[in-house]
Design a protein around this nucleic acid. Structure first.
Lengths: 335, 335
DNA sequence: TTGTAAGCGTTATCAA
DNA sequence: TTGATAACGCTTACAA
């Protein structure tokens, strides 16, 4: 069913029907009524494809995340979808699995779909795909991870501060043998969360023990393996700061298996406040990120761009430490 | 950048360039080389919008779920996205929030986008939007919840059996005062999970106590409120079967607040195996649904349809009971 | 107020 | 093997 069908049945031209639908005030009331009535009765839906082709723009935005099942990203996604749809935009979501090739594919796809803008959590700071994006010139908002793309807006979290606060909290509890499981150093989230940990230790004059710094890949398995290495050290740490929720899950599994009590034998603190964190026994102390806010601000920045703003804007949000029960004062270990 | 740009720079016609890209064998090798080289160098991306308009079909599928943040749906979504993208299709995801109006909007949107097919977890068995869908005639797969749409394929879980098994398990542990928090009776998931509970009780000749049957709306708050009512009963239940993960979260919060020990004071069993279920202390015994399988089968059915199959197919998957630590034999309460 | 016609970028048909 | 041309469904000057 097309405009032409409607037009013919009414003995009108397509343009009149089109106008009746998109600029009702430009068409005589009786004509308009007739059109609207028939459109309703026949359940006519305008073809957005044809409209987009004509207008040269689509009312859709692309979103690339690395794992839609990760509650951090699904929270961000939900907020973006909400803001986008309230602006009349569709969200096309692509999963990239932390895989640069998949990212590049997703990006190509979005380009072909002519999305009006892209919100992007890139797995590579300086990936080739980003240069493509720059060349393509579509409005872009980087979330979660900083990128080298100068023209992009960004919504990031102050990871360095968040992890420094977390580490300081552990220090305040009397720990000195604090280990960390960091993310890939190719990612700003990985680097910054490690850097915050280091700064906190340095500030207190604590010498960094290389074996206490494990580098994971933000996935569950690497958390588990890193924890395993930490546990097998001659002098294992008394506290552990994990750089994201997935790796924390792996750590917890291992700790349970090995009957390492939390926080009795090991204080545990992790970035990201997944739903399960508060159901853990004891509930997990975490650095929470404002997922909802990240998503809605990212979407807002994008729509500002679409509305004409040209100067890139960068927003840095605060994380906050939620103290629950997984960290204990060091003295408690002696009891 | 369009085909015309490429064509002009090469002194060729658009048709030749188009062919070089889509039917390489129909164009002379040297010409093809020249085209491909320039396309590559300029980073030309074909306009999928224009292509779709011309072809009359898009390579995208629509997905409507009620909450992308619910791990059940994000699991299903991830699988669908994976299968779709491996078939070269984009997934357009819409959140409907269990709201029939939002569902109708989402559906209208998908119609306008001319998606090739729709995968749909509808909040209403017989919603008006479903009739629209039928009229529109796009290939549809119903997931999670059955619909009245005769032409649709479906991928459902045997909810009745799942909840009957769960209830029987509680009965086997010696419980007789078993309550349930069910979902809305407007949904097949709500009805079937309640029916399974009833059948199990009936089979053992246990009389149903009306106050033990609470009807929630599958959201966290209603789980909490229902549990509150159950706890305030003169003779509270000794075991509780909750019909989904979100409501279970609400129940757990309340139980903790009231210092009701699980499973000491109350055995707890829930539908859905959220990530947090196994991290709970004690780990939650659940009826797990095969989310990954639901998603991938749904997508496969859709692609079969797109490939030409016309007869509707219905798949019913088995859930399975995962026994963890949240249910105890009744005797244990006396200790 | 309405209609005619051009054009968005692509593919497909037909002719050269 | 290549090119001219029409078509997909819509919007929008411009003309009537």
């Amino acid at each position: 069913m097309t405009l032409l069908d409607i037009a013919r049945q009414l003995g009108l031209s397509v343009s009149t029907v089109s106008r009746a639908l998109t600029r009702p005030d430009m068409v005589a009331a009786p004509t308009r009524e007739r059109v609207l009535e028939l459109v309703e009765r026949q359940g006519y839906q305008p073809n957005a494809i044809a409209r987009s082709l004509q207008k040269g723009v689509t009312r859709s935005v692309g979103l690339i995340v690395s794992d839609i099942q990760n509650p951090f990203y699904s929270g961000v996604t939900k907020a973006i979808e909400r803001v986008a749809s309230s602006n009349g935009y569709t969200t096309v979501i692509c999963n990239a699995d932390e895989d640069l090739t998949k990212e590049a594919n997703a990006l190509r796809l979005l380009a072909q779909l002519q999305v009006a803008g892209v919100i992007y959590a890139s797995s590579g700071y300086d990936a080739e795909s980003l240069r493509e994006l720059g060349r393509w010139g579509v409005p872009t908002v980087a979330i979660d991870r900083a990128t080298s793309l100068q023209t992009a807006d960004s919504v990031l979290v102050d990871n360095l501060r968040g992890s420094r606060e977390a580490t300081e909290y552990l220090l305040d509890l009397g720990h000195t043998r604090i280990a960390t499981i960091a993310g890939p150093t190719s990612l700003t989230t990985g680097r910054d969360r490690l850097e915050g940990y280091r700064q906190a230790l340095l500030d207190r004059g604590i010498h960094e023990i290389p074996a206490y710094v494990q580098i994971g890949d933000f996935k569950e398995a690497s958390g588990r393996e890193s924890a395993e290495r930490l546990l097998s050290l001659q002098v294992p740490p008394t506290a552990l700061f994990v750089a994201n929720n997935e790796m924390a899950a792996g750590v917890i599994d291992l700790l349970r298996e090995r009957r390492v009590r939390i926080p009795g034998d090991m204080s545990l603190l992790s970035f990201d406040d997944a739903r399960w964190a508060r159901y853990l026994e004891p509930p997990l102390t975490v650095v929470a990120q404002p997922t909802e806010e990240i998503g809605s601000i990212a979407a807002q920045l994008l729509f500002e761009r679409l509305a004409g703003r040209t100067a890139p804007r960068a927003r840095v949000l605060r994380s906050h430490l939620i103290i629950r029960g997984s960290c204990a004062a060091l003295a408690a270990r002696q009891e």
